[in-house]
Design a protein around this nucleic acid. Structure first.
Lengths: 209, 209
DNA sequence: CAAAATGTGAGTAATATTTTCATATTCTGT
DNA sequence: ACAGAATATGAAAATATTACTCACATTTTG
C-alpha cells in the first residue's frame, strides 16, 4: 500500500514490528475508512472502528494515541492511494482520449470501495495537519497531475491556464461521481460515458463557445 | 405513486401568530442554516443555533419539538429557495446561452450565502422525511427543471436522454461550486466563466468527440 | 386590564464516547 | 525450551456533550 512517515507529533504511539501487528494496523485503517464512508465524521467512533476491524479498542490505542491521529492516518493513506493511481495512469503514456477515459474510470473505481470517504475526509473530518487546506501539498500535487493531463491531452507545453482547467475538471468529476454514488448510480455505464464526454468536450479546443 | 403525504409528526409545535414570533422563527432558521453550513451536522446543536440567533433555546423549542424537525424546516426552506430560483429563470424566457449563464450564476449565488449548506443537507444531516432519497419529490422536480433547460437550450421537444444530461450537468455544477467554495474561490470570475464554458460545450451537439 | 402569546436560561437527565490499565496471549531469538 | 518483548483484550473509569424542560418574566392583543 503506502509507506508511513514519522511526524512531529508522532502519528503512531508505537511502530508495529511483527507481521501480526502490521496486519492489525492495516485492518484498523480499512475499518476506519469504511466507518467514515458509511457514517460520516459524526458517526466515527473508535469503538465502532475497533468492532468493525474485529480487534479490541485497546489494540487501536496501542498504535494511535487518539482519535484524531487515526483520522490523519486514514486520510494520509487515502490521499497516497489517489496520487498513486494518477501516477500509474500517467506512466502508461496513453493517447489523449484513452487518457481521459482512464482517469475518469480510475476515479470512479477509487470511489467505489468507500463511496463517501473522499468527501468526508476533505469536508467533514477535522485534521491536525493541513491536508484540508486548499494550498496543502496534496491539493497542489493532485491538481498538478490534472494540469499536466491537460497539457498532455492538448499535446503541447504546460500552460498557466491549464491550472484553472484542471480545477474545473477535477471538481466537476468529483461532483458527478459523488452524487452518482449518493444515488447508487456509480455503476451506470451511461453516467460513466457521459462523464467522459463532458471532460473530453471541455478539453477540445477549436470550436468556440 | 404518492404525492406529498401529511407528516405524522407535526413540523411545528406551535404556529407563530404575531409578527415578533414570526421574526424569531425566521431568525432561528437562518441561524440554523449558518451553523449547518459552517460546522456541519456534527457541530449542529440547538444551543449554538439559539445563541447565534440571539434567542434562548427555550424559544427554539417553543416552535420546534426537536432538533430533527428544525433541520427539516431548514431543508424545506433551502430547497424551496432553489426551486424558486429555477422557476424565475425559466420564466425569463432567455436565449440558450444566456439561459445557461443565468442558471450557473444563480447557483453560484445560491451557494454564496451558506457555502456548505446544500451539501450538508443532502449528505450529512438526517431527515425524518424523504428529501434525502434520490427519488424524492425534490430531486425529481429539481432534475426535471434541468432536463427542461436542456431541451430549451437545444430548442426542441423534451427527450428521455435529457435526464441523464441534466444529471451530469447538475452534479458537475454542484461539484465545481462546492469545491470552489471550499477553496474560497466562489467569487473568482475565471471559475464562473469556465464553469459556464464547461456546461455550454457539453450541451453543444454537432462536433463529435 | 385580563388573557393570550411570547420569551428566558439555568438546570436536569440522559447519553455517548474516549481512553486506560491490569491481565492474558503470542511471538522471537537464543 | 525459555525469557523477555511484542501484541491483544475489554470492562469500566473518566470525561464530555447536549437535547430538552419548566417555572417564571415580559410583551402584545382586544
Amino acid at each position: 500500500m503506502s509507506t508511513r512517515i514519522a511526524k512531529q507529533k508522532p502519528m503512531m504511539r508505537k511502530e508495529p514490528r511483527q507481521a501480526r501487528s502490521r496486519a492489525t494496523v492495516e485492518t484498523i485503517i480499512q475499518a476506519g475508512a469504511r466507518v467514515l464512508s458509511r457514517e460520516g465524521w459524526a458517526g466515527f467512533t473508535t469503538n465502532k472502528v475497533a468492532d468493525l476491524a474485529g480487534v479490541s479498542v485497546g489494540s487501536l490505542y496501542q498504535y494511535y494515541p487518539d482519535k484524531l491521529s487515526l483520522v490523519d492516518a486514514i486520510r494520509q493513506n487515502h490521499l497516497d492511494d489517489c496520487l498513486s493511481i494518477m501516477r500509474k495512469i500517467k506512466a502508461k503514456g496513453l493517447a489523449p482520449m484513452q487518457f481521459v477515459a482512464n482517469i475518469v474510470q480510475a476515479m470512479i473505481e477509487a470511489h467505489s470501495t468507500y463511496p463517501g470517504l473522499h468527501r468526508v475526509l476533505l469536508d467533514e473530518a477535522p485534521s491536525s495537519d493541513d491536508y484540508r487546506n486548499p494550498n496543502s501539498g496534496f491539493e497542489i500535487e493532485y491538481l498538478a497531475y490534472y494540469a499536466d493531463a491537460v497539457s498532455i491531452y492538448r499535446n503541447r507545453q504546460p500552460n498557466k491556464a491549464d491550472h484553472i482547467t484542471a480545477l474545473i475538471i477535477s471538481d466537476a468529476v468529483d461532483g458527478v461521481i459523488h452524487n452518482a454514488a449518493r444515488r447508487g448510480l456509480l455503476d451506470d455505464p451511461a453516467i460513466q460515458s457521459e462523464l467522459i464526454r463532458l471532460v473530453s468536450k471541455y478539453l477540445d479546443e477549436g470550436v468556440n463557445p
